[in-house]
C-alpha cells in the first residue's frame, strides 16, 4: 500500500490555495484571470474541507520480520 496519503493530498491543495492568494494579492492580473483564480481558490478551499470531513484514520498493522530478520 503506497501512494499519497490524505495528508499529502491536503498539503498539495492547501499550498496551491496559498499560492493563489499570494498571486491574487499581487494585484497585477487581468480581471478575467483573477476571477478564474478566485474560482479555483474557492474550489480548493472546498476540497480541503471535504478532505477533512471525509477523513478516516487509517491504521495499518506492520507485519514484523521478527527480530534479527
Amino acid at each position: 500500500m503506497t501512494g499519497a496519503s490524505s495528508t499529502e493530498a491536503y498539503e498539495v491543495l492547501f499550498s496551491r490555495l496559498q499560492a493563489i492568494i499570494a498571486r491574487l494579492e499581487s494585484g497585477d492580473l487581468p480581471l478575467a484571470d483573477s476571477l478564474a483564480l478566485y474560482e479555483e481558490g474557492v474550489a480548493l478551499s472546498a476540497s480541503c474541507q471535504h478532505l477533512l470531513d471525509a477523513a478516516v484514520l487509517r491504521v495499518r498493522e506492520l507485519q514484523q520480520q521478527d527480530a534479527g530478520g
Binding site: 496519503s5 490524505s6 495528508t7 491536503y10 478532505l51 477533512l52 477523513a55 478516516v56 484514520l57 487509517r58 491504521v59 495499518r60 498493522e61 506492520l62 514484523q64 521478527d66 527480530a67 534479527g68 530478520g69
Partner: peptide
C-alpha cells in the same frame, strides 16, 4: 484523521521485551 498509522506491535515488558521493541 488525514494521517495514516503504521502500528509496529511489540512486547513492552518481560523477558525479550527490549529486543521486541528494537525489532
Amino acid at each position: 484523521p488525514l494521517a495514516e498509522v503504521l502500528l509496529a506491535g511489540c512486547q513492552v515488558q518481560g523477558v525479550g521485551a527490549a529486543e521486541s521493541v528494537v525489532a
